[in-house]
Design a protein around this nucleic acid. Structure first.
Lengths: 135, 135
DNA sequence: GTCCGTGCAAAGGATTTGCATAATC
DNA sequence: GATTATGCAAATCCTTTGCACGGAC
């Protein structure tokens, strides 16, 4: 239940926070931008200011509740953080997102990073394509 | 020689275009932002307006001469396009960039994309870490 | 009641654009 | 000389922030 996630993150239970968390929970297959969250919430009569949406998302990111992505160059999109690292396959037409995890790729990345003398902190692999429905 | 690249792309030879191309050629190990290009060119007494830098970079991108990356969320960085696809290992401290290509990862990505019924159009893998000098 | 969260409007940074001038071919 | 590029300043887009009010605990 969402309330527990908020409490666990040390955040007070407020309407904006609950609604945004709800929305992200129910839009698992599509990562949302701040503007989209704003629009969607207005549709269901929840008028939260865009400033609050940015503030809440930033707090959620800091608390590890959501992950921010920069798939496109002019804005960020957000997804719920389920804890397991995964990469993304994004449909360039309908923006559907498939999450995957591949042990072979993960291991290979670790090897390469070491080979170049780096210490890996994070990584992101995004494949852009066209899904079966949009082809 | 740079002039040929411009002609091949159907672009007129102008000072701003030559200088920007020169600069990108000589900064292979660090991808530059528009602002950095602006600063660097000013240092060598080449006063090109920031608007022109953005315009030139956008044209270069359209012509396939440069590749735009969004490693960080608030601005883009640019690198010369040498034709071969590669992925990136970025140092989070000094911003050095190592380019690599790994056949195992590439093949695996193709398999995964097919498995999910997508047609792959593009992909980017970026590993964020700390390089040997910055550790 | 105290402290934190929110809305509003204004500010901020990166990037784009309109228009008159200047350069290339 | 015709056409395309550039510089400047204003505009635009996404995101952040200051401040006064409202809500959670």
């Amino acid at each position: 239940m969402e309330k527990n996630h908020l409490k666990a993150a040390g955040l007070k239970i407020t309407t904006p926070r609950m609604r945004i968390l709800d929305l992200l929970t129910t839009s698992g297959d599509r990562h949302l931008s701040a503007e989209e969250i704003y629009q969607q919430l207005h549709k269901i009569d929840t008028d939260i200011s865009i400033a609050t949406i940015y503030r809440v998302l930033t707090q959620f990111e800091a608390a590890g509740l959501v992950i921010r992505h920069n798939f496109e160059e002019n804005h960020s999109v957000f997804e719920l953080n389920h804890g397991e690292h995964h990469d993304h396959l994004v449909c360039m037409k309908c923006r559907k997102v498939v999450e995957f995890h591949d042990a072979v790729i993960e291991a290979r990345q670790e090897e390469l990073t070491k080979k170049f003398g780096f210490i890996m902190k994070d990584h992101c692999l995004t494949i852009y394509g066209v899904c079966s429905e949009c082809q």
